[in-house]
Structures are given as structure tokens and as C-alpha cells.
């Protein structure tokens, strides 16, 4: 099995097999499914059909199709170089696609891995940048208050910590009231504790404003904790899809999430790391086998020695006996 082989399971079959796992197994539909016209009446936030983006000869996006419903939180996983960032840039509007159709809402906002703040503008001016509404300053201050940075509104970006700068970037995205929020590994450069707090913040903000969210990430756990649906990208297409509509707040040690985690890691072609206990057990078994083999070898050698020296031994005992 190649790492990204599409799991051609029928959704109905899986639900029948184990109804409790319905959402877990509601996996994986291929291009055939998506090539149908989207369901009428319900406008989608993002519709991509056979999107191709080529840089010279190389097709980074190669017939990608994708739907995101309004208010849906979708995570996009994939190994580096699979085209995640290219798709995101196309959705942001930085790059044009080579062919195919891509429709997205007019009001979009993006948060990148780096905060990308204009160092020469104070925090609130960064938030207000490009907002064409009356009373921009009030809106910017409100957005900063929402990310918990009201008192840092007049700070220069260079004086903000990494987490604070990223929250300003988040406020800058939110103040636009986007219908589609694009997040390109926004937590990758933060320390573990800040990342946990940012996860909670992003969920709170998402539930308050309900934009459609596309989160590009390397972190399987992050995707499992945050998203309603997880897409796995490979070779410029959506190779697999896992539904993840469990209730929030979620804990990564939830067995259902662990099961999905294993699935995702397999789809990403990553062997799960053995736990320490498993490692010890494996090493122990190896040592036991080694000892057993050594013991056996020694026994064999002794036995051989005994058979070779038996007559001599025998005479010696005899001699001792004689002496006695």
C-alpha cells in the first residue's frame, strides 16, 4: 500500500459496520464525488474544481477539488511540498491558478506563520490597515480587546512577544469580519504553552464569528483538536478526508481521536513512534533472546567439551580414588 492510497470505502458500508463510529468512518470521498455540482440552495464558502497550479513544468496543484461549507472548520494536513501553501496562497489571492475553477467569498483574511506586522505602525494601526469602514480605530481596539490585547493597542510591534504579535495578526484578520479565514501554520513558531492558549482563543473566536476556516498545519494533534474535517493532501490533490465532528472541548487522549490519529499518520506515511514502554519491552525481548542464545551456546560448548574430555576425566577420578 502506497502511503497515500485512497481508502475506497463506502460511507454507508462503514456506518452499517459500526454505527457508533459513523463520523470517524465517514471518510474519504474521491474526485468522482466532488465533480458533481455542489448541492443547490446551500452556498459553499469555498468550491475548488480541478484546480491546477503549475510552476513551469511542475504541477504543484494537480486537479485539486475541495468544498468548504460556511462556518466549517477544516484542517489541511500534508507533507511539506505537497501543495498546501500553494492552495492557501491561491485562496488568499496572492497567486493566480493555472487552470480549473476556484470560487471563494469576497471577504477573506489570512494569518501566516510569521505575524507579518508592519513594524512602523502601532498595533492598532496594523489591525486597522486596509479596513474601509467608518470609525476604524474603535473597530481595531475592539478586535484587539477580543484577542486580549486591549492594553497593548498602542505598542510598537517590535516590543510584542511572539504570541502577542500573532494575536495582533489574528485581530487584524478578524476585524475584517471574513467569511473565510485562512490560517497558514499560525501556531508553528510559538512555544507549546502559548500554542495551547492560541488553540483555545482561535476556537472561541471561531465560535463567536463563525467564518469558514481553512487551517494548514503539520501538526496532526492540532488538526484533531480544532477541525470539523481533516483533509490530507498529497501530490497536489486532496488524497483523503476524515470527518472529525466530535464535541468540543476535546482531549487528545480521547480513544476516538487516538484512532483517527493513527489513521492520519498512516495516511501521511508516518510510522507511529514506539512508546517508551514498548521500546523497553522490545529491547528486553531482544536481550532475553540474546541471553538464551548465549546460554544455549555455552551449554553446547560444555557438552562438547565434556564428551571430548570424558575418558581423561574418568581416569583422573579413578586416580584420585586410588590415592584416597
Amino acid at each position: 500500500m502506497t502511503p497515500f492510497e485512497r481508502v475506497d470505502l463506502n460511507k454507508a458500508d462503514l456506518e452499517q459496520a459500526d454505527p457508533s463510529n459513523a463520523d470517524l468512518a465517514r471518510a474519504v470521498h474521491g474526485k468522482a464525488d466532488l465533480n458533481k455540482t455542489p448541492p443547490a440552495g446551500k452556498a459553499l464558502a469555498v468550491t475548488a474544481r480541478n484546480v491546477v497550479k503549475a510552476f513551469g513544468e511542475r504541477k504543484v496543484l494537480d486537479g485539486l477539488s475541495l468544498d468548504i461549507a460556511p462556518g466549517e472548520f477544516v484542517a489541511l494536513l500534508g507533507r511539506s511540498g505537497c501543495g498546501k501553501t500553494t492552495l492557501l496562497r491561491a485562496l488568499v489571492g496572492i497567486d493566480a491558478i493555472t487552470s480549473g475553477t476556484l470560487s471563494m467569498p469576497p471577504v477573506r483574511a489570512a494569518v501566516f506563520q510569521e505575524p507579518r506586522l508592519m513594524l512602523w505602525k502601532r498595533a492598532w494601526r496594523n489591525v486597522a490597515l486596509g479596513v474601509r469602514k467608518p470609525d476604524v480605530q474603535q473597530l481595531a481596539l475592539k478586535a484587539l480587546a477580543e484577542v486580549g490585547l486591549a492594553e497593548r493597542a498602542h505598542a510598537w510591534p517590535a516590543t510584542l512577544s511572539g504570541g502577542e504579535a500573532q494575536r495582533v495578526a489574528l485581530a487584524r484578520a478578524l476585524v475584517r469580519e471574513p467569511q473565510l479565514l485562512l490560517l497558514d501554520e499560525p501556531f508553528a513558531a510559538l512555544d507549546a504553552l502559548t500554542r495551547i492558549r492560541m488553540h483555545q482563543l482561535i476556537l472561541t473566536l471561531w465560535q463567536a464569528h463563525l467564518p469558514a476556516v481553512l487551517l494548514v498545519t503539520h501538526d496532526v494533534d492540532e488538526a484533531l483538536l480544532l477541525a470539523d474535517r481533516i483533509l490530507v493532501m498529497a501530490d497536489g490533490k486532496v488524497a483523503a478526508e476524515i470527518s472529525n465532528a466530535g464535541a468540543r472541548p476535546r482531549h487528545i487522549d480521547d480513544p476516538q481521536l487516538q484512532e483517527k490519529r493513527r489513521q492520519l499518520l498512516a495516511l501521511l506515511g508516518v510510522e507511529e513512534k514506539p512508546t517508551y514502554a514498548a521500546y523497553v519491552a522490545q529491547q528486553g525481548a531482544q536481550l532475553d533472546a540474546l541471553h538464551a542464545a548465549q546460554l544455549e551456546a555455552r551449554r553446547d560448548a560444555e557438552a562438547q567439551l565434556q564428551t571430548e574430555t570424558q575418558p581423561e576425566n574418568h581416569s583422573e577420578t579413578q586416580r584420585i580414588r586410588v590415592a584416597a
Binding site: 496562497r89 488568499v92 489571492g93 496572492i94 477573506r108 483574511a109 489570512a110 501566516f112 510569521e114 507579518r116 508592519m118 512602523w120 505602525k121 490597515l129 486596509g130 487584524r172 475584517r176
Partner: peptide, 27 residues
Amino acid sequence: VKLIEAGISLGLTRAELIVHVILPGAL
């Protein structure tokens, strides 16, 4: 370039990019 891309993603026009991003950055 990332700042210019950020400016584009914020919906700045070319003139706004020059005034808010390019000229202050080159100041």
C-alpha cells in the same frame, strides 16, 4: 516580500501598498 503579500491579503490597493508598506519600510 512577505509584508507585501500580507498587504495584498489585507486588500490594500497599489497606492495604499506604496504609502503604508513600501515607503515606510524603505524609510
